[in-house]
Design a protein around this nucleic acid. Structure first.
Lengths: 228, 228
DNA sequence: ACTTATCTTAACAATTCCGTAATACGGCGT
DNA sequence: ACGCCGTATTACGGAATTGTTAAGATAAGT
């Protein structure tokens, strides 16, 4: 009888709270990772790929709001549920947080039962189910995020990580043009600074490996995914 | 020819109760092991590989709930039946325990007849019985969880325990990428901390022993099981 | 206690990936 | 046609990740 409800990243600067939450969620069978501030949170999120992030609002070194904004900018976390933790009834943050992309909030002090319930329902609501694999299909092209593969007419195309992420972003909204700027922020993150030509090079590699032209250049604007 | 009914691990901090249960179950032909707390329980479970664990909820040094969670996180015990023992009508724990992966519960004080009945039916209900071995087959490859063996084209491949567990985890969802992080937690457990290269070394050994490449590296992400 | 197998670590090698820079190409306006 | 601007292409070196090996530590078997 296998039970594997999901992976959760806890972000709070107070070790006691992390410990407390961690203990309670481990008992429910979740896999847990923890971070003490926003910067570490983003690093660990990339590594751990949690299904859900529990994020404290008040933190040193990049606060909760800023962290949510940044995560939500990164395509990589489009399907990650974010729940933030506020001091009791701090409505200002509550509304604000939900606006910028959090899915729910929980007020401190934290009651274990409530916490588990909210997390459970949030995961159910957003269907973060480990069983079913996440894939997108466009005609003969298939992008499978669970297996990290792309295939065209059954033939597998081997992409490197950045290439995969880039294609995956563009394909998330077929036909829509992504600005170079947007691509940079969503694939590379806000902090990382890379030159403009870097995108071209990755696009080039995708085109080359794929054989067919999946990506259309919109000069002066950006790129879009489009099947031939 | 007598049917071998199974191996049971009893976990309780009160020696009298252990003795009492043990006596009754031995009479039914079960093989018995015992542990006095959660920590010892996990150690002995790894060793003894019980078909069923009888677990007291109230214990020092890692309580029953925490122990269940830990066992359930470890891929190794996916097929072990867990029954926990509560004080009479402690509904809170009953519901809780079932949610996090226990298969049944029994209230104290324990009546020998009831105990035997429940254990018998739990084993019948959940156990993939000894006759029918549990195995996964992929083309020419066969992974047998009952016999702890792997064979390729009828030829047996001898893997050590960690190697087997690692392969077994990856093969549980063919094609799916497992992050290094996740592998660590699910094969080694939540507490244990081992270096990153450890995984590589085990992967190496599996590849070496198997001869064929069963495992594909996804650079920067993790590993996946995939037949050539 | 001795022997053997298994697990982990550490150091080094090999590989792959990524970003940059240099250059080529192509459209567009003048 | 020429220059300008933005993109395409290519090759290279550093960085990051994984592969490999051997040796020490731990556990298991006799």
């Amino acid at each position: 009888m296998e039970v594997f409800p999901g992976k959760i990243l806890i972000v709070d600067d107070e070790p006691d709270i992390v410990e407390f939450i961690s203990y309670n969620l481990k008992n429910k069978g979740y896999l847990i990772a923890a971070a003490k501030d926003g910067v570490e949170a983003i690093r660990k999120a990339k590594d751990f790929r949690p299904d859900l992030i529990l994020l404290d609002i008040m933190m040193p070194n990049k606060d909760g709001m800023e962290t949510i904004r940044e995560l939500r900018n990164m395509h990589e976390f489009d399907d990650t549920v974010i729940i933030f933790l506020t001091a009791l009834n701090d409505e200002k943050y509550e509304i604000e947080g939900l606006k910028i992309g959090a899915d729910d909030y929980i007020s401190k002090p934290i009651k274990p039962e409530l916490l588990a319930t909210r997390i459970g329902s949030a995961l159910r609501r957003f269907r973060k189910d480990d069983e079913q694999e996440q894939k997108q299909i466009f005609g003969d092209l298939e992008i499978n995020k669970t297996k990290f593969t792309v295939s065209y007419k059954g033939q597998e195309i081997l992409l490197a990580k950045k290439e995969f992420e880039l294609l995956s972003l563009l394909a998330s909204k077929p036909g829509r043009v992504f600005l170079r700027n947007e691509i940079l922020q969503r694939v590379w993150g806000t902090d990382v600074i890379v030159g403009d030509r870097t995108i071209d090079v990755h696009i080039r590699k995708i085109r080359q490996k794929a054989g067919i032209d999946l990506i259309t250049t919109v000069k002066g604007v950006g790129y879009k995914f489009e099947m031939a």
